[in-house]
Amino acid sequence: MALLLGSVIACAHLPPAPERAIPSMLAREGIGGAVLAIGPIGGPVRLVAWGEAAPGQPMRVGDRFRLASLAKPLTAATALALVRLGKLRLDRPLPETANGATLRQLLSHSGGWDRALTFDPIGDPVSAQRIGLADPDDCRVIANRMPANDFRPGERYAYSNIGYCRIGQAIERAARLDYAEAVARLILRPRRSGLAYLGLPSVTHPSRFSPNAWRALGPAGGWTGSALDYWRFAAGPVDPLVRFRPPFAVAGQSHYGLGWRIRPDGTLTHFGAIPGIFALVVRTPTHAAVLLTNGRPFDDEATSEALIRSLTRAMRRP
């Protein structure tokens, strides 16, 4: 099957590192199953499935997953496309925020909200009750209830779903389109990616989240799709602006650029983790890999780091 970004090969053989690492991780963490898409940019994509999509239902390479925070590189790519079109400005305060934060600051998680100091009800239904919302389904409603800021925008890094909700609003204003349609027109359709906003997964994600809570993730985490569809996005053109290094970044350590985490060697990564979900993308100059699962590990950061190392080694093999 010919594709814009190469052909697809469904197979059970991969370089040894991920072949061992991924099944081992699933067993250790009690996760039902996973699908991996991996391959050179412009070359053949290899798809591998492990485990079960639901009890008694084998995982298929085309199964659709909730993507959690893998939505953020997608939202960022759309915002940066609008910057290139002259419809958004990186360093102009956005009217969608009440604290003078700019698009650059929101994209790099330095927009002024710190969930460690307050909390982040987007993606956390329990916290939403603390601001008087029983079961919200719109991140904008949540963001409007939160304090204007916890620190001065641009001062430091603090991961924030609220900031990405506001980016979604800015995209709608600048594109004069619904957020999902703007992403589809500017990013997904040119890459022949079938990712869906607020779509339903075909796998079972064990979680107590209500349907409204999933929708409330919005531009920060509300996308669904297959590993191949996300691979088609991740293996596409990457705007050089994503490699922005904020002044507070620590030399020799990974930092968050504009929509991606950037490792010291230049590799781009992102993971998403909420109850019942763990998703990971790794992009090198020559390859891309996407791993989607229907369970969450006990330690998101440690699991992500181990898998990034494994996948990066695999992608460097001849």
Rank of each mutant, 00 (worst) to 15 (best):
A116F: 05
R232P: 01
L103I: 08
L241G: 04
K72S: 04
A289P: 09
P136M: 01
A227Y: 08
R316H: 02
A249S: 05
A53N: 08
G199Q: 00
P147R: 02
R130C: 02
P190L: 11
T303Q: 07
W214E: 03
T75K: 09
T269G: 03
P264F: 06
A227D: 03
L88S: 05
A227Q: 04
D178G: 04
T224D: 07
S304E: 05
R215K: 15
I277M: 14
L186H: 14
P136A: 05
L258A: 00
C165N: 05
A27N: 12
I22L: 00
P44Y: 00
P44M: 03
L36R: 01
L85E: 12
P206I: 01
M1G: 12
L94H: 04
E155M: 15
P73T: 11
P58M: 02
A81Q: 15
L198F: 13
L311E: 02
T204L: 10
W113P: 03
R316S: 06
A220F: 04
E29M: 08
V45K: 03
A180R: 12
L195W: 11
C165P: 06
M59V: 03
P219F: 08
A81I: 13
P23E: 10
W214F: 12
G154Q: 05
Q169P: 00
G222V: 13
F119I: 11
L74K: 09
A196H: 07
G62A: 06
S304P: 01
L311D: 06
I162Q: 01
A175D: 10
A79Q: 01
L258P: 12
S160H: 02
A134T: 06
R316L: 02
L14T: 00
I38C: 02
T267M: 15
T78Y: 13
G295Y: 05
P246S: 08
S304L: 10
R243M: 10
L4A: 13
L88T: 14
T102L: 14
G221I: 01
V282D: 06
S226M: 07
A128L: 01
P285H: 01
G112M: 11
E181I: 09
L292Y: 10
P219H: 05
D299M: 14
P246Q: 11
R283N: 07
M146C: 09
A216Y: 12
R176C: 10
Q169D: 04
